[in-house]
Design a protein around this nucleic acid. Structure first.
Lengths: 107, 107
DNA sequence: ACTGCATATGACGCTTGCGTTATATAACCC
DNA sequence: GGGTTATATAACGCAAGCGTCATATGCAGT
């Protein structure tokens, strides 16, 4: 989650959700959207890699990046945990707050 | 998500998952765990508040903080989106990578 | 081997953001 | 009102992170 606190890195991950891409493709895309250079993109990819968010495989002269789904399972589980725990601990005051909103459990 | 990129803030949110707490309780807890002062905690709470992650209500002399569940619905949906999209886009090459390849290229 | 492309790293400046201490604001209690 | 408690803000120093350009490394094609 630390690694996902940056908009560029979140965008990189979104791009990778569509399937694996080379470092160059990613650098170009993110570079166009955020106006940053290739080294900057490379560094973001390094952070994601070291955080275990993405995986990279050298493919000839190119390096292919891909999403590591476990990382997002973790994020999802954490977020849901907060939510579910909160739901479970509704007391009088919190109930009052919750009255006005729609509560929908799992899908 | 930007606001959740900090461990102190994530911890605050976890504490709030258990139910609402006063700023003082939170400051004490987080202060003990991370060794930071009351103003520092207050600032983190402000960031969370401005990001729409938590809600705060003055309760007499105390200010009660609580989790805003919609924020975590959003996080959860985002994470799941990445995962689901990724799953849907597995093709031959990616499957091969996912099956066997382990890349140990951090340095 | 040399050239060229793809990617990563080094060195460095600047901005951001976190931390601290000191102080303001506001409610409570006497 | 005066004092105490709870929380937020102000001012400021310092460290971390992100950006840049220049350069290294490694693979491919000739």
């Amino acid at each position: 989650m630390d690694a996902l606190g940056d908009p560029v890195r979140r965008r990189l991950v979104e791009l990778l959700a569509d399937g694996e891409r080379s470092a160059g493709q990613l650098a170009t895309a993110v570079g166009a959207e955020f106006g940053i250079s290739q080294p900057a993109a490379s560094r973001h990819l390094r952070v994601l890699r070291e955080a275990g968010v993405v995986d990279s495989v050298p493919q000839g002269a190119v390096r292919l990046y891909s999403v590591r789904p476990e990382a997002f399972d973790q994020v999802e589980a954490w977020a849901r945990g907060i939510r579910r725990f909160w739901d479970g601990h509704l007391d009088a005051l919190e109930t009052e707050i919750a009255r006005g909103r729609r509560s929908r459990d799992d899908d």
